[in-house]
């Protein structure tokens, strides 16, 4: 309770500020309308109007929540407006990209740990690759994969989210695979263990905590990748596409609900990875008692 209270207070404060801001930002429109009608609304009327506009600059929390509920729980999943449907499209690309990225990261890390040449030549470029804004490449990846004859957007989205998610995995796995100290490595040498045995019995289990720490970052990054992959070339399915459509048609509610759906998806994924982490660490005997 002691740790929950401050979080609750802060969250409540954010909601209050949000309400105040939406009254302030939406009131311009209300006053404008009233002036045209030749009325002078009272403060109470202004507040009431700002709470329920069709195209608010900043929709108040309950309006977003109501819209979110309508688009997820009350719409049929097959409906083109259902956020569950769009979220599912995005989630597919996210999971594919996440899997590809994680495998790539682990493979590169294994190579780097075992080959000094690879360590010296590839590692600096892996770092540089992350300073390249991948979103700049996104439109081109989509065109490229179309030119090579791949239909649909799943493949380009997967590439983008894999590109964003491999790096945290790579860095943590290099750290993790190198985390056994000299004493432990020496012990395995006295057992005359082969390189492969050292890898499977010592290095890999030792890297598990690092692996899961990076998974949380990677899954969030690959969701960003999937959303960004939906932006540039007019996709019509997926949460990113909803944001773009909302932006182009001037429908703030679509943008806000897509944003919150993406946030909820991200939170769910991170939470899931956290659960897996606890489970895996307990199974390997490394978890907190």
């Amino acid at each position: 309770m002691r740790r929950v209270l401050p979080v609750l207070v802060v969250t409540a404060a954010i909601v209050v500020i949000w309400y105040a801001a939406s009254v302030w930002m939406n009131s311009t429109w209300t006053l404008d309308q009233a002036e045209r009608a030749g009325e002078t609304p009272t403060f109470g009327q202004i507040v009431a109007d700002t709470m329920a506009q069709d195209r608010p600059l900043l929709p108040p929390p309950h309006q977003v929540a109501a819209e979110l509920w309508e688009l997820t729980a009350e719409k049929k999943i097959t409906s083109k407006r259902s956020l569950v449907y769009h979220g599912w499209i995005t989630l597919q690309a996210t999971m594919l990209g996440f899997a590809v990225g994680a495998i790539m990261g682990i493979a590169l890390a294994i190579g780097i740990v075992h080959s000094r040449t690879m360590d010296m030549s590839v590692m600096p470029w892996a770092i540089i690759s992350q300073t390249v804004p991948i979103v700049a490449i996104a439109p081109m990846i989509i065109v490229l994969s179309n030119a090579v004859g791949i239909d649909g957007r799943t493949v380009p989205k997967t590439i983008i989210s894999a590109y964003l998610s491999y790096f945290p995995v790579l860095v943590s796995m290099v750290k993790g695979l190198r985390s056994p100290d000299a004493m432990q490595l020496d012990l395995l040498r006295t057992y005359s263990a082969s390189n492969a045995q050292t890898f499977w019995k010592l290095r890999l289990p030792a890297s598990l905590p690092y692996f899961f720490a990076s998974m949380k970052v990677a899954v969030a990054a690959s969701l960003v990748g999937a959303i960004v992959g939906e932006l540039p070339t007019g996709a019509i399915q997926g949460l990113g596409a909803r944001m773009l459509i909302g932006s182009q048609f001037g429908e703030p509610m679509i943008m806000w609900t897509a944003l919150f759906a993406a946030a909820i998806l991200a939170a769910g994924l991170v939470f899931l990875v956290g659960l897996l982490e606890r489970l895996a660490l307990r199974l390997t005997g490394q978890g907190a008692p």
């Binding site: 979080v7 954010i14 600059l57 969030a220 960003v224 949460l239 990113g240 932006s247 703030p252 991200a266």
Partner: peptide
Amino acid sequence: PFLQQGLLPVGNFVAALPIVGIAPIMVMW
């Protein structure tokens, strides 16, 4: 310390969210 305990979890949570999604809203504003 109160603000710290309150804001840190919220901040950590928000840092993991796809914040790029606010881009269309900012363009509108």
